[in-house]
Write a protein that binds this DNA or RNA. Sequence first.
DNA 1: GGAGACTGCGCC
DNA 2: AAATGGCGCAGTCTCC
Length: 651
Amino acid sequence: MDNKFFKYLPPWLRDPDPDQWLLTDNYLVLDFEGTNLEKGSALVDDNRILLACWRYKGVSKAVWGDVHDMGDLLADIEEADLVVAHNAKFELQWLKRAGARLQDMLTYDTMLGEYVLYGNQKVPLNLGAIASRYGLGGKEAFVDKMMRAGVCPSMLPRSLLLDRCRKDVLQTEEIFLQQRQVLKDTDRLKTVFTRNILTAPLADIEFNGMCLSADRVREEYNDAVKRTTEIGRKLDEMAGGINLNSPVQLGEFVYGTLEFEELKSKRGEPLRTPSGGRKTDSDTLSALKAKTKQQKEFVSLWSEYNKLTSALSKNLEFFKGVVEESEGGIFHGQFNQAVTATHRLSASGRPIKFEMFKKKKSVQFQNMPRAYKRLFKSRNDGWLVGEADGGQLEFRVAGFLGADKAAVDAIADKFDVHTFTSETLTANGEPTGRQDAKAHTFKPLYGGQSGTKAQQAYYQAFKARYPGITSWQENNKREVLRTKQLRIPSGLIFYWPDTKLRDDYITNSTSICNYPVQSFATADIIPIAIASLWHIMKRADMQSFIVNTVHDSTIMELHPDEVEPIGEISGFSFTDYVYFYLEEVYDVKFFVNLAAGYKVGEHWSEGEEIVFEKYPKHKLEDLIHEESTSKVEVPQGHRGTVRRRTMVQRN
DNA sequence: GGAGACTGCGCC
DNA sequence: AAATGGCGCAGTCTCC
C-alpha cells in the first residue's frame, strides 16, 4: 500500500490474512494466577503475579514468581506468532507490567471466539462455562469455590493453584483449537480476527486513564453545590419533606398535590412506566402542560435541580474526589469487549473510595456529559488533547450496506441531511430548526416509524429518498422472518430465534434494522481504525498516547510537536486503512466516502475540527456494472454462501 | 444488610 | 397493544 505510515503497522495489519495468522501452529497458550484485588487486574499496583503457566510447541511450562521472573515466558512469546488466552486483555496487561511490548503481539482470545460464535445471543463467557459446553469439564470445584468466595490465591496451597492454572491452559488450548475450526468452517475467522486486533491497544489504553483539570473541576463542583443548595431550599418550601429522587414520591406530588394531568397516548391512555407507575422523567415533566403559577414554577425549578443533582452524583463528586485525592488528577476506566449485542465495546468505571465521600464511586468512560469534556486536559504541561472520530459514520455505513446510490451521492456531495429533515418537517406543518431536526434525521435507520404527523411524513420522505437502504432493511426483515438469522459483511451472524409476523409487523424489526449498521460501523470499522492508529503511534515511537475511545471516536493526549502528524495518521487510519482492511479481510469493496474528524485543544472537545474526507477507489456504479461478469459482492444479509442480487432493479 | 427490580439519565 | 438501537451507574424501594 502506498502510504508513508503503512510501514509502521505490524505484519498482521500489513498483511491481514486471518487464515495465516490464526491457523498457525506457532501459537503459545498462556494463563496467569495472581492476587485478587479488583479481580486480579494488573492496573492495581498492589496486585502481583504468583504463577504463570503456558504451553508452547507442545511443551507445558510453569513459573512461580512475579513480573520480574518471567524471562523464559517472554522469550517464548517473542518466538511465537500468536498468544492464546482466555480474556487476553488481562494477560496482556500483566505482560506489559513484565516488560513486554504489546505492539509486537497478536492475540487470540477464546472469550472473543465464543462471543463471535454466539453473535448477539447472551451466554456465559467465563472459561469454566465454555469448557463445560465443549465437554472439557468445568473448573475444579474446591479452588473455584474458594476463589469465588474471595480467598486470595496467594493463600491457597501451591499444588492446587498449579493444578488449576495448568488445567486452564489445557482447556484454553482445546477450546481455541475447536473454536478456530468452527470459525473457519463458517467463514468467521475474519470476524474474530478484527475483534482480536483491538485487544493490545485496549490493554495499553486502560493503563493511561484520563486527566482532569483541578481548577476547572473545583470551579464546576463549587458552582453546582451552591446552586443545588439554593434551588433545593426553594423546592423544599414547595414540596416540603418529600424525596425528589423517589419517582413514587415525586409522582404523588406532581400528579396529586400539583394536579398535573398525565400525558396520554393517542388512544387516550396515560403513558406509564413499564410496570404501570406514573412517569417522572425530565422529558415527561417538561412536556406537562403547566397552567397555574405554582405548576410553572415547580417544573422550571425541578428541571434545573434534577440536572444538577444527577451531574453531581454521577460525575462531579467523583471528579472532585479525583482531583483532591488521586495522584495527578487521573482516573481509569475499563473496556469490556464481550458484552454488547452488536459487538461494539462497553465500558465500566473502576470504583474508588474517596475519603470525602461515604460510598465508593465510579464513572464510566463512555457517558461523560458533553458539558464536562472541557474538564479534561493532558497530564503533561504544554501538551494538548485531541479527538479523532469517524464522521457521520453510521449513515455512511447504512448507505454502503443498502448500496444506496442516493445516500452515496449525498455523502460525496456533502449534502446537508439535517436541513432536509428540517425542511420536510416544516413543510408538513411543524416548523423545526436544523438543530432540533437532527434528532429525527436518522431515526428511520433504526426502524423508527411512529411520531407526529410531520415526523411520520419525514420518515416516509427518508424512505423515498434512500430506496436502497429501505429495501435492504425490508429484505433483512423478511430474511430474518424466514431464517431467524442475518449475516453482515464482517461475517458476524445475528440471531433472532423468536421472530414472528404479527399483524403485518415483523417482530424485532427495530433491532434487525439497527444491529447491522451499528455493528459494522462501531464493532468493525472503528476498531480497525484504532488498531491502525495505536500501532503507528507506538511503532513510530511517538510520545503522544490514546486515553479513551467512545464508539466512533478516540481521545488522545498530544505532544505539541506531534499534533500535525497524528492528524495525518488519524486521517489515514479512519479512511484509507479501513478501505484496505475491509477489502483484504472481508473482500468488501467499500464504495462510500469515509471521513475522519480531528479536533485539538487544551481541553477535550475544544478547538476547530479538521475533516479528512476520502473518496474510495471503488464506485457503486462500477460495481453494479461489473455485477453480471465479475465476482463482485454487494453487501447483504445472507447466510453461508454468497448470494448475488441485481442492483439495477432498485434505483 | 444485601440483592435485585425499577426508574431515570448520561453518552454514541 | 405497540413498535428507534446499544450500554453502565445512581438512587429508591421491596424482598429475603
